[in-house]
């Protein structure tokens, strides 16, 4: 029971919206969308998501510290994948022999890359052991 009601602005707002001329078309569109969603089963899916804890299960699946950390850096991963992917799919004409390898080793970026590769190999080794 509400002892001292404040003015119901919601009803006024709804009535004002209903009076707007574009409302007729919007409602017709919404009705068509609802029919299509119902026929495709999307409405049932939304009902399940809203009422039956599927959302909770989905959250439990996604909300892990590892997933959150990964999602947090997704833009960085995409950048790395895109850049390295471009190198991988581009035809490479240059050939590198032992001499070229030794020369490349003097490049600080290659040195850092090698350190990262070793770190990655070390981690992959741990995964194998697990």
């Amino acid at each position: 029971m509400v002892e001292e009601k404040s003015d119901s602005k919601s009803t006024e707002k709804i009535l004002a919206l209903l009076e707007r001329p574009e409302m007729e078309e919007a409602v017709a569109n919404l009705a068509e969308l609802l029919i299509a969603m119902n026929e495709s089963g999307l409405l049932d899916l939304l009902k399940v998501l809203a009422d039956r804890g599927v959302l909770e299960s989905l959250m439990k699946y996604l909300m892990t510290p590892d997933f959150l950390r990964m999602a947090d850096k997704l833009d960085k991963y995409v950048h790395v994948l895109e850049e390295s992917g471009e190198i991988l799919i581009t035809e490479e004409k240059a050939r590198t022999g032992i001499g070229g390898l030794l020369k490349a080793m003097r490049d600080p970026d290659v040195q850092v890359g090698l350190t990262k590769l070793i770190k990655l190999l070390k981690f992959l080794g741990t995964v194998k052991e697990q």
Partner: peptide
């Protein structure tokens, strides 16, 4: 509550 709990627990 269950949705927020999942977030708070994971973080």
């Amino acid at each position: 509550e269950p949705i927020f709990d999942v977030y708070f627990n994971a973080t």
